[in-house]
Design a protein around this nucleic acid. Structure first.
Length: 153
DNA sequence: GCCAACGTTGGC
DNA sequence: GCCAACGTTGGC
């Protein structure tokens, strides 16, 4: 099993929104970055555990845990001119963008802030805390995963 | 709102 | 294939 972290702007889609979805499950649409796309297409497997991260907000940080429940398939929002994620270059016969389905597991007991993650020595090599990191999906090692769960307590 | 970092686009 | 221009991300 693999571990991941996925970012979302809470104004757009928050951990509470996910919890309130039917079956507490939603497709992770709108990713328009090839590296992130490749991870969803090739590496994310059913049962993988994922941190939900709130970005671009007052206190950026980890707010919950979720699980992959459907593996990579075409992101249909790329085909719909009505959505802000429309991409005319994505052909339904040959989709450019992919997504996975994610199911809510729980909120963390509190927001584990980016500032706190940056202070943790065990996490100093984590992609998230590196300067200039802009990937919205990234792998988390088992050591990092466990270190973050320790921080939560 | 600013701006650094980074990805993408497109002319050549 | 290079690289300047441009757009986006996201912390602060």
């Amino acid at each position: 099993m693999n571990y991941w972290l996925m970012k979302s702007e809470p104004n757009d889609f928050s951990i509470d929104d996910l919890e309130n979805m039917p079956n507490q499950t939603e497709h992770w649409d709108g990713v328009r970055n090839y590296q992130a796309r490749n991870m969803m297409r090739d590496q994310m497997k059913i049962g993988d555990q994922v941190f939900f991260y709130h970005s671009n907000c007052k206190v950026p940080g980890i707010v919950g845990i979720m699980e992959v429940v459907r593996e990579g398939y075409p992101d249909h929002t790329a085909f719909d001119p009505q959505t802000k994620y429309f991409d005319p270059k994505s052909d339904p016969q040959k989709p450019r963008w992919m997504m996975v389905d994610i199911k809510y597991i729980r909120h963390t007991s509190r927001t584990i802030s980016l500032a706190e993650l940056k202070e943790c020595e065990l996490l100093e090599n984590m992609q998230l805390v590196r300067k200039g990191n802009r990937l919205s999906i990234m792998p988390v090692t088992v050591q990092e995963w466990n270190a973050i769960l320790q921080l939560e307590k």
